[in-house]
Simulated scan of single mutants.
Amino acid sequence: MHTETTMPKQVEADNSNQSHGIWNFLKYLRAIPFWIIIVCFITLVIGMTVAVFFNAFAKAWNGTILPDGYTLQWFKQAWVSYEIGNYYQITLEIVFSATVISLVLSLPTAYILARRDFPYKNLLIGFFQMPFTLPELVYAIPITSIFYSIGLAETMPGLILVNLIIGIPFSVFILIPFIESLDQRLEWAAQSLGASKFKMLTRIIIPQLIPGITASAINIFIRMFSNFTIILLISGPEKQTLPVMVFSVLSSSGSQPPQMLNSLALSLMFPLLFFAFFSLWFSSYTQRRLGK
């Protein structure tokens, strides 16, 4: 009797395992088209990037798998013909100035939003989120109209102010979690010992926020370095950032050699990739130092 009751249970378990295996196999089959699309997309993006990279250094590339030879001639020619050094200087001046101003203005703002409760706080937070939630043209066109009417368009101060629209909100939302993680008892102790708000800020809060301030500076620097749409609308022929200049050249390339155009594109891609990898490395380093 014991053997007779055990056998149906074993057969039932075997059937259940077989059905479970078939179901898993069918799920894998259904996922295959999705993974094919993902692999094709990644291959396409990497392939185009590699093609631009090799073509920028190629002496000639006529239907072969790899170029016939490699040279830096196109980079030298593009650097001289398009005055890339001058546009680098203008871009760095604008972005560096906007980064410093953004940090100075966003630090007290982030502290208030992280530490204080007040009426319409959520409304203020929503206001700072607008550059992320709205299409850029929604606020870029009115700002462009205002800047041209008051004479700030095509000027260095105007380009710096426009970058603050991105820099300040982005910096605020990076700094808020860092401020919320600080031990507020240190601030209470400093206040009880008679420290002024300025001393508390410079001696208690800012030293603890060095990782957050650095992370904020790196991230907003990258964002503003690659800022394009609103800069395109208010920049002039003499005051252009590097991304706008590259776009202008590529959109009116005419009879320029493809190798020189690709080397121009890489002149913009290289610093952005460097800043991006540095940002990832610093974030990982900060997490290890903080034990997270």
Rank of each mutant, 00 (worst) to 15 (best):
residue 3 T to D: 07
residue 6 T to V: 06
residue 13 A to V: 07
residue 14 D to H: 12
residue 18 Q to E: 09
residue 20 H to I: 12
residue 24 N to V: 08
residue 26 L to D: 08
residue 30 R to V: 10
residue 31 A to I: 06
residue 36 I to E: 00
residue 37 I to K: 07
residue 37 I to M: 13
residue 38 I to R: 12
residue 43 T to L: 15
residue 47 G to R: 11
residue 50 V to M: 15
residue 50 V to L: 13
residue 52 V to Q: 08
residue 53 F to W: 05
residue 58 A to K: 06
residue 59 K to P: 00
residue 63 G to Q: 04
residue 66 L to C: 05
residue 70 Y to K: 04
residue 71 T to K: 08
residue 74 W to I: 12
residue 79 W to T: 14
residue 80 V to H: 08
residue 85 G to R: 09
residue 87 Y to M: 15
residue 88 Y to L: 15
residue 90 I to L: 13
residue 91 T to L: 00
residue 92 L to W: 10
residue 93 E to M: 08
residue 96 F to Y: 05
residue 97 S to E: 10
residue 98 A to Y: 12
residue 101 I to W: 04
residue 103 L to R: 06
residue 105 L to W: 02
residue 108 P to V: 01
residue 110 A to E: 01
residue 112 I to A: 15
residue 112 I to M: 14
residue 112 I to N: 10
residue 121 K to W: 00
residue 124 L to R: 15
residue 125 I to W: 02
residue 126 G to A: 07
residue 128 F to P: 09
residue 129 Q to E: 15
residue 129 Q to H: 04
residue 133 T to H: 06
residue 134 L to K: 13
residue 137 L to V: 02
residue 139 Y to T: 11
residue 141 I to W: 05
residue 141 I to Q: 06
residue 142 P to Y: 02
residue 149 S to L: 04
residue 155 T to V: 00
residue 159 L to P: 01
residue 164 L to Q: 02
residue 166 I to Y: 10
residue 171 S to C: 14
residue 171 S to G: 06
residue 183 D to A: 06
residue 184 Q to L: 04
residue 188 W to G: 00
residue 190 A to E: 11
residue 192 S to F: 03
residue 197 K to W: 01
residue 200 M to L: 08
residue 202 T to P: 03
residue 202 T to W: 02
residue 202 T to Q: 02
residue 204 I to F: 05
residue 210 I to G: 06
residue 212 G to W: 03
residue 213 I to S: 03
residue 213 I to N: 00
residue 216 S to I: 02
residue 217 A to V: 09
residue 223 R to N: 07
residue 229 T to N: 11
residue 231 I to G: 04
residue 233 L to C: 02
residue 235 S to L: 00
residue 235 S to E: 01
residue 238 E to H: 01
residue 239 K to M: 00
residue 240 Q to Y: 05
residue 246 V to G: 09
residue 251 S to D: 14
residue 255 S to R: 13
residue 255 S to G: 09
residue 256 Q to A: 14
residue 260 M to W: 07
residue 261 L to T: 13
residue 261 L to H: 10
residue 264 L to W: 12
residue 265 A to Y: 00
residue 269 M to F: 06
residue 269 M to A: 15
residue 270 F to K: 13
residue 272 L to D: 04
residue 283 S to K: 14
residue 284 S to I: 02
residue 288 R to C: 03
residue 290 L to C: 15
residue 292 K to S: 11
